[in-house]
Design a protein around this nucleic acid. Sequence first.
DNA 1: TTGAAAGCGCTAACAG
DNA 2: CTGTTAGCGCTTTCAA
Lengths: 350, 350
Amino acid sequence: MKRYTLEEIGKLAGVSRATVSRVINHYPHIRPEIRERVEAVIAQTGFQPNAVARSLVSSRTNIVGLIIPSTVEEVFTDPYYAYVINGISQSCNTNGLILSLFLIHSLEEERNVIQAVVGTGLVDGLIITASRRNREMLATLLASQLPIVFIGQPDNDTNTHYVDVDNVSGGYLATEHLISLGYENIGIIVSYMNKSGEARLDGYKRALNDHGLPFSEDLVAYGDYSLESGYHAMKQLIKRKPQAVFATNDTMAFGAIRALKEAGLRVPEDIAIIGFDDLPSAQRSENPALSTIHQPIQQTGLDAVELLLKVVNGEVQKAQHQSFRQRWLFAKAAAHLERLAREAKNTATS
Amino acid sequence: MKRYTLEEIGKLAGVSRATVSRVINHYPHIRPEIRERVEAVIAQTGFQPNAVARSLVSSRTNIVGLIIPSTVEEVFTDPYYAYVINGISQSCNTNGLILSLFLIHSLEEERNVIQAVVGTGLVDGLIITASRRNREMLATLLASQLPIVFIGQPDNDTNTHYVDVDNVSGGYLATEHLISLGYENIGIIVSYMNKSGEARLDGYKRALNDHGLPFSEDLVAYGDYSLESGYHAMKQLIKRKPQAVFATNDTMAFGAIRALKEAGLRVPEDIAIIGFDDLPSAQRSENPALSTIHQPIQQTGLDAVELLLKVVNGEVQKAQHQSFRQRWLFAKAAAHLERLAREAKNTATS
DNA sequence: TTGAAAGCGCTAACAG
DNA sequence: CTGTTAGCGCTTTCAA
């Protein structure tokens, strides 16, 4: 299939290239007769305007970059990212955007990729997930003036845009659920990786407090959202003999369950576990199906793209600290809890 | 950070923009003195040449598109894709390429995305995974003259480039392994989705034949690589009372195991299962650790990028039917089998 | 309502 | 060795 240019299409239709451009861009004031003629030629030739040339003159590429930074390659073990990517991809498709994916496997790569992306005008904006982030990279990014949206609240949330779920409420709900089941000695496996972990821990503390239960550092174990870390955290926690444990993501919850199995403990008969994320794999998990707080991961991806689009279009004040929290968590989690309560009743007899 | 142009850098360094361009592109014949002066200005200003302008003149974007077509959103349930993407991403990073990801969620999206990508010169080439493919899309793609590399042998492999593992050998190895463990009544869960499935089935047949075992259609059940399909296929297969089953990917193997559990059968005491892919999750799987044929997924991604690069650079004859098969499978699988044999011995007593 | 012309930032002859 | 010049394919004034 031959590649045509505006000029050639113009010649074929007996008009100038400017007119063809106007037709393509739906400029309103064109004689219908001419429009039709041009459109006919376009249809017949299968002409598509060159995206690069368009970008050069408009200084817009319609490409959004998604950066998933992490020194450990294991990130991909966590299905969480698959869902984030899926949500973002979907939103890009509906908004006519191209998604460029940057998986960072090493610090060196990180430097190169950021360099390549930042000064070159290749992307209109960036979405960055809440993985490990280092100061150097953040500094480069902020200096670049590129529109950026973070997924998950950044550590230094000065003047940065981000989308996130309400982690405090999520932590609260998870803990309260365990309390409502009658447990009092409740442990937590929390990530020290970023603010989300802190917030979920905060929710946990508040729930304990609101129900008159004491908080004890002994019942807190730390992980990095990986399965392995959940496993080790649980091994440590077992010594404190908790009745139930809140793992602040599903992947760590799975690791915890494995540790319990190895120790010959049954879930949930001996120790109950609740997760956070509601990964589809959690729903499918057996022995036992993991209770978990629903986090609208896909939705988060969609929102990130939409927010980024606004930033790119200058629809949000740059100087203004813009956050964008989801409340959807409440409804979902409430429904979830109801279902859990129902299930709890049903299984109480067995 | 101000964005500079070649012209401005030239002015700052007291040279023409052409000279700056030469410095950037490491053109050899430049007076060292001038080179240094220009480089100093570049370093000081943090200048990065505009990628879009470069692409316009070179008609190369250094962007490779990865298309993962599938009408079912569930593709993402299969960790296989995460590893493919990871491999491709890594290879792009080392080759200075940008990876654009196109996840196709619906037929309409498929049409739009293909349209947007094909005629516009946005990508230098395309990598397409071995998911569902429809004829319309393939026709558009082939007509586009875009360099394309498939991952997994396409149905109509006329004049198309692809990378794939040796599925026949893989199927053979899996089956032979089961035979070597003493099983004679061996079922297979095979995908009807593409040629890989057929090839694995072919290997299965050959292994049976080579060991004097009869092939029976009754012991063949079909799936689409999804967990659910593995589950249902197994339910069907159970009636035939096989001693062992070869699931042609790990995800279906997991589904099969679930079906067996539900039926109160133990794995592998009552029915042995072997998979195909060697997903890390397979290694981690318990009750029991899944035996599986190693498929170098990441490596496949790397090779796909490298092959695509060659095609883009015109280093492979266009007219020539180019295939690119991996042999690595052999060595790996052999090692794998050894280990399995050892394990089999150890567990034989228990 | 349309065409001519300038120019986005860069590379690549072509002179010198 | 370096500067001048002519585009790459498109959008967008500016006139007509």
